[in-house]
Design a protein around this nucleic acid. Structure first.
Length: 730
DNA sequence: CTTTTATCGGTTTTT
DNA sequence: CCGATAAAAG
């Protein structure tokens, strides 16, 4: 049996991977380059510990950053190891959540505490700003939520910040926020970690219990840990527990969210003896793609150092198309995708990546027009949709009447005549009598605190909750359905026409989800929850609810952040322009450019076979057309690795190009040959614009385009699109 | 209190 | 240019 397991975990590992998997040092840092098989190493390590070193399933803890990664790990482990579901595996937040559920009392939380997301957090901040009569122009709720979040990432509460930096003007707001959450039984994402950290710190017996339990903790994507997560990790590990962390400093792209690459260096210095293993063989991309990516990332300072190599041969050159504008850019990408399909490639192997979400708009337009089916990943997630959150807020309030945030969300959704004024009255009473908003409303209904429309609305609202209380312990799906229908949400969204229909669909989907979540006994056990309604809410809190629909053959559109960890045979990275990528606002930070470059590195290393970079010389910004310069990242790729299609662009850039020999000759000087059907100076006829004179040529053959001066204007035309004919005029 | 009109601002987002 | 909020009219 041992021999069989050994065969399983060893299978197909290279020397570096094997040495990482079998290290006997208590601490190990695996610097795993993109596509170097890091998930495989993590799985193998777990199997090795379980089968070779005699660790029990309860003695191992595996931490990831995404539910997806945790799910994949669990899936792959359970394929070879039958007790996989006894291993604690989850996201940092998921495990912290579990600790808080198990020890809610010790953590000073009500059993029914609710996890709130960033939007709820921001709404709460908005309310606090209003209560403190602070204009959002002075300090926006967004900024406040961000500031609080960042401090929690550092492990600092309001009083800690005051001690460290003195009284900052927004600290009373942070304090009010903490208080509000405590009273309402709310826990935000940062709080999950901070509270569970304090839980362990304040209860030595509990800490001793967990430190005695775990013999090794494995961490995926270690470069993304923030200070608090790192402290949390070290506290939980204590003296006797091994730490096996896997990461890549070059792929740290969440610095803006508190991730500290410095944790990697600190780990090697404070956790000794530490085995450092580099995984540099890449099993994903061609050597050309890797060399290009290596060249770009080499411009960053202070790296751990790592050079990826591939055994897959050189492959084709990296393409760079300098488009006229974003429509031309999208059109060229479509052309590339078509060609990929013609060679037998599947659409599911195609990814179009961009720096910011809004860039998907034009791409979607053109892809739709050209009939290429696609899927946009990211953007609005299921459990973030307004209608879904509305329905869940009713549920939250039913479960926990103290939840003022939930109350504020639904009291007038759908509209029932309780606007700003009524809400202020309720809030005042609540504050004076130390009641929750719901209790205050109930009191006012009985004692005649409302009049007319408001009374009508408030009493139906209060009555609804009494009614639902009876369904409270029954079937969650039935309850959800009752809530959605009887609250009026269903009809409310039904009025919205076409968009309303979609919203109603989502509400139906929510009812389905409710019936599915109830069956998950593993989750119930893990979170030590018996109340089915509470279990449902706890489950949805940390879950985006996206269903990966991979069954259909669709091209994938997503931000580079969303693409991390994924791979595609054919990849286009768009908007490679100064100001877009690197993003101008990101450059304000000291480390901003480095992080943008790491993002570029991540983008490039997604590609297995074919990598196309595109840039526009003109882009519609906030309404106005602006001239763009090609991104410095394109310039950082050695000329011999790149095939420029919009050649004239490259010489026009210059501002960031270090050496002039890199820029190509202007395309106008390209000699006429069979690849250039309309050389400069030739006369052409266009079906719509009429007669014209070619004033510039760019690119070759089907990829090419020409600039033609017609009688009314001068236009760039794609040869693949425009039907030009030679005009043998006099 | 709700609907319309003006003004403003505009990254990335695993949890 | 678009979408999200804030004052002004219904």
């Amino acid at each position: 049996m041992q021999a069989k397991n050994q065969a399983v975990w060893q299978e197909g590992l290279n020397d570096a991977q094997l040495s990482a998997v079998t290290t006997r040092l208590p601490y190990a840092l695996v610097l795993a380059g993109a596509g170097s098989g890091k998930t495989r190493v993590l799985i193998a390590r777990m199997l090795y510990l379980l089968s070779e070193r005699g660790y029990g399933p309860a003695q191992v803890l595996a931490l990831t950053f995404t539910n997806k990664a945790a799910g994949e790990m669990r899936h792959r482990l359970s394929a070879v190891f039958p007790w996989a579901n006894h291993v604690w595996m989850g996201t940092f937040h998921g495990i912290a959540h579990r600790l808080l559920r198990l020890h809610a009392r010790e953590a000073d939380l009500p059993d029914s505490f609710t996890v709130i997301d960033s939007e709820d957090q921001q709404r709460l901040c908005k309310r606090i700003l209003r209560e403190h009569e602070i204009d959002e122009k002075v300090l926006s709720s967004k900024t406040l939520a961000y500031l609080i979040g960042r401090e929690k990432d550092q492990g600092r509460r309001a009083h800690d910040v005051a001690q460290a930096y003195g009284e900052l003007p927004w600290l009373p707001l942070y304090e009010a926020y903490e208080q509000q959450c405590q009273v309402s039984g709310l826990v935000d994402f940062g709080e999950l970690l901070l509270r569970s950290y304090e839980l362990l710190l304040k209860h030595p017996a509990l800490l001793a219990h967990y430190q005695g339990r775990f013999r090794e903790i494995l961490v995926d994507e270690f470069q993304d840990t923030n200070r608090l997560q790192y402290q949390w990790l070290k506290l939980l590990a204590g003296e006797g527990c091994g730490l096996f962390v896997v990461g890549d400093d070059d792929q740290s792209i969440y610095g803006w969210r508190g991730a500290e690459v410095a944790n990697i260096r600190d780990f090697t210095e404070t956790c000794v003896p530490c085995d450092i293993v580099r995984l540099e063989q890449n099993y994903r991309s061609t050597q050309t793609i890797l060399s290009a990516a290596n060249a770009v990332i080499a411009h960053n300072q202070g790296r751990m150092g790592k050079d990826l190599w591939s055994a897959q041969g050189e492959g084709e050159k990296v393409g760079h198309y300098a488009a006229i504008n974003e429509f031309d850019e999208a059109r060229y990408i479509v052309q590339g995708i078509r060609r990929w399909q013609e060679t037998g490639g599947a659409l599911a192997d195609v990814a179009v990546l961009y720096r910011s979400n809004h860039q998907s708009r034009v791409l979607e337009q053109v892809l739709t027009r050209e009939g290429i089916p696609y899927k946009v990943t990211g953007g609005m997630r299921f459990f973030e949709r307004a209608e879904v959150k509305d329905a869940l807020a009713y549920t939250r309030l039913l479960l926990n009447p103290q939840d003022d945030a939930a109350f504020a969300r639904v009291i007038n959704t759908p509209t029932r005549g309780l606007g700003e004024k009524s809400l202020a009255k309720i809030a005042l009473l609540a504050q004076q009598q130390h009641l929750s908003l719901l209790e205050a409303t109930s009191w006012m209904v009985e004692k005649g605190g409302f009049s007319g429309k408001a009374l009508q609305g408030a009493s139906t609202f209060v009555a609804l909750f009494k009614q639902w209380q009876a369904l409270r312990s029954g079937d969650v799906a039935l309850l959800m359905e009752a809530i959605i229908k009887e609250s009026g949400l269903w009809d409310f969204y039904g009025q919205d026409g076409l968009t309303g229909e979609g919203r109603q669909e989502n509400l139906t989907e929510l009812v389905n989800a409710a019936s599915q979540y109830q069956v998950d006994e593993d989750a119930a056990e893990a979170l030590a929850i018996t109340d089915p309604l509470l279990l449902f809410l706890a489950q949805t809190a940390l879950d985006a609810g996206d269903k990966g629909d991979t069954e259909r053959d669709l091209a994938q559109l997503m931000t580079i952040h969303a693409a991390k960890g994924l791979e595609f045979a054919w990849v286009a990275v768009t908007g490679l322009e100064e100001g877009i990528f690197p993003l101008s606002r990101a450059l304000e930070d000291a480390d901003g450019l480095s992080e943008e470059r790491r993002l570029m590195y991540v983008a490039m290393t997604r590609a297995k076979q074919s990598l196309l970079l595109t840039s526009c010389s003109m882009r519609r910004f906030h309404g106005a057309e602006s001239l763009m310069q090609v991104s410095r990242f394109v310039q950082e790729i050695p000329t011999e690795l790149i095939q420029s299609i919009g050649a004239y662009q490259r010489s026009a850039v210059s501002a960031y190009s270090q050496s002039s020999d890199r820029s190509l000759e202007p395309a106008a000087s390209v000699q006429p040959n069979s690849d250039v059907p309309f050389p400069k100076g030739s006369k052409v006829i266009h079906a719509r614009f009429g007669e014209g004179l070619v004033v510039a040529v760019d690119g070759l053959g089907e990829d090419g385009r020409v600039q033609v001066r017609f009688c009314d204007a001068t236009r760039w035309l794609l040869l693949s699109v425009a039907k030009l004919e030679r005009w043998q005029g006099e």
